[in-house]
Computed example of a mutant assay.
Amino acid sequence: MDEPSKIYRVGDATITRVLEQRLPFKTQTLFADFDPAVIEEHGTWLKDGHIDATAEHFILSVNTWVVRVGGKVILIDTASGNHKNRPFSALFHQLNTPYLERLARAGVTPDEVDFVLLTHLHVDHVGWNTRLNDGRWVPTFPNARYVFSSAERQHFDTAAGASRRMVFDDSVLPVIEAGLAEEIGPQGGQYLPGIRFHSTPGHSAGHMSIELESAGAHALFSGDVWHHAIQVYRPAWSSMFCADKSRANASREWVLERAADTGATVFTPHFSGTSAGEVTHAGSGFTWRFL
């Protein structure tokens, strides 16, 4: 898991992955529409680290992407975090990963981060927003602006749902109270020169995908419009984590079309392997190539 991360160049930007953890999910649990025929159809690439040896579990990653552009250091999503109470999921409960050491190996210290851009506010995307210091949750990146969807904040900043409230209170609220948060309206829009939030709801209430354009080249940080590369070939499959499957399907189709039409390098939070690739049109559908 500590292999050196590839550095991608998109125009004048460089992009590097920081991998927090890899996780197995039963195929039929992750996708209610799972059809075993896809294993035979796509077995050649699936067996290269995207499914386990028994072909019963898809392998997912939990990633942060480090973007350097225009003299700024930007993080896209912040994974799950350490020492956090997550009784609703053993996958995220009281983790103790060397995430900050991996971030340092990518050449970044917390004080150097200028912006933290969040696709949405789920447990595995906001965890390293904060760290535990003398019994208090404090911003991990004290000099950064944390930017997220206003619709997401409104949804999670409610008393309904103990797990939802728990994640918000320890991983989002502290950065708001520290005066470091900025919100993007529900339709998305440009935040920095060349960086735009696109509304891609369905997985969550105010989910956003983030696009970077630099020197005529495009990068697309998809967020959780998908969880596994098999969804490029089965875009009608929404995962168990999608709140509104119909809207999630529409958002996934939009991302596929956008990526194929712009020639974007796509950076995903959960695909295994390199987690990055290209989408191209293939007949009436799409195909994926890992980079």
Rank of each mutant, 00 (worst) to 15 (best):
P4H: 10
S5C: 09
K6I: 14
R9H: 14
V10W: 07
V10Y: 05
V10P: 04
G11Q: 06
T14Q: 12
E20W: 09
P24E: 15
K26S: 14
K26F: 13
F34Y: 15
D35W: 04
A37K: 01
A37E: 07
A37Q: 05
W45E: 04
D48S: 12
H50P: 04
T54D: 15
E56H: 08
F58A: 06
L60D: 09
T64L: 01
W65F: 06
V67A: 07
R68I: 05
V69G: 03
I74K: 12
I74H: 11
I76N: 07
D77I: 04
G81P: 01
N82H: 09
N82A: 05
N85C: 12
N85R: 14
P87R: 13
P87K: 13
L91Y: 14
L91D: 14
F92I: 08
Q94F: 11
N96M: 07
T97N: 15
P98I: 08
P98A: 13
Y99I: 07
R102L: 11
A104F: 04
T109Y: 03
E112K: 03
L117K: 03
L118M: 10
L118Y: 02
D124Q: 01
H125V: 09
N129K: 08
N133F: 13
F141G: 02
F141L: 02
N143S: 04
Y146T: 07
V147A: 06
S149A: 04
S150F: 04
A151P: 05
E152M: 08
R153N: 12
H155I: 01
F156H: 13
M166G: 07
F168D: 09
P174I: 05
L180C: 00
A181T: 00
A181R: 01
E182K: 11
E183P: 02
E183G: 01
E183I: 06
G188S: 08
G189R: 05
G189S: 07
Y191H: 13
P193W: 11
R196D: 14
S199T: 11
T200S: 15
P201S: 08
G202Q: 00
H203E: 10
A205S: 12
E211A: 15
L212D: 10
L212H: 04
H218W: 15
H218L: 03
L220H: 10
D224A: 06
W226G: 11
A229W: 10
A229L: 12
Q231H: 03
R234S: 09
P235F: 00
A236I: 09
W237A: 06
S239Q: 09
C242Q: 13
C242T: 13
R247D: 13
N249Y: 10
A260R: 08
D261T: 11
F267P: 00
F267T: 03
H270I: 01
F271A: 00
S272Y: 02
S272P: 03
G273W: 04
T274Q: 14
V279G: 02
V279W: 06
T280Y: 10
F286L: 05
T287C: 06
W288C: 00
